[in-house]
Design a protein around this nucleic acid. Structure first.
Lengths: 125, 125
DNA sequence: CTAAAACCTGACATTGATGTGAGGGGCAAG
DNA sequence: CTTGCCCCTCACATCAATGTCAGGTTTTAG
């Protein structure tokens, strides 16, 4: 498929797809005229890249990890393994923090709802 | 306390504290000579701001939410409540995504470990 | 064949949080 | 008084991902 279709199917902008390629995260074959062509599996890869981005991994890190995805257990250096574990732990900590923040938001929301409830039931300010 | 101490105690750079103030997220009293002075409770506020930032809320959003923190249930407009609920939901979705990503990383790590195990036990490539 | 739609490269713009540096006060200790 | 450290403002730099525009080629549909 060409870049437009990949963009449509992944919800990622054409610009970003070219950027991923520039960063070495995504590969494509080129037609004689220079147009990029992608295989079906690139859809999943783009989705995965997006998730890593969303997880806050910088592309530098993603570049290190992708070989492990491409060739699971082929040349996974100890360094790469350690890097993955570090990122996993970082992510775990980050998740915990987000959960705390969400709980704080929930608390605020509950307080606010209770107040609105009181208002509606006729209490004056 | 002055800005340097607040920075030290929160682990946030002096630059960032001034930026928070510029964004209306943090207040300070000024001494005659113009130096910022903070009360003890600002330590917690800065920590909270940092967590909201870490949760990916842009300062625009944080500005909307902070009044609800400052005066719980006082003038919480419906709009602010809705905004908080939206952010809470967004956060929930984001957390779920991060968990998925972490699980994917875990999978890669497990695969890699198994491979290294095989290597160590004498299998050749 | 032609027009529209999609693609190409390259470059500059943007956003948000933060770094950094210049140039200048404020204040305590020696 | 001077040295050193902390503070002030202003302004420009940075980083990463993405947007956007320009000028040009390719593909597709009619």
């Amino acid at each position: 498929m060409r870049i437009g279709e990949l963009a449509r199917r992944t919800g990622v902008s054409v610009r970003s797809l070219r950027y991923y390629e520039e960063q070495g995260l995504l590969t494509s074959t080129r037609s004689a005229s220079g147009q990029r062509h992608y295989t079906e599996d690139k859809v999943d890869r783009v989705a995965f890249i997006q998730r890593l981005y969303a997880a806050g991994l910088p592309s530098r890190t993603i570049i290190e990890l992708l070989p492990c995805v491409d060739a699971p257990s082929e040349g996974n250096s100890d360094a790469a393994m350690e890097h993955m574990e570090r990122e996993r732990d970082r992510l775990t900590g980050h998740i915990a923090e987000l959960v705390r923040t969400r709980d704080a938001l929930d608390g605020l929301i509950a307080t606010g709802r209770a107040y609105q409830q009181r208002l509606r039931s006729g209490a004056s300010v």
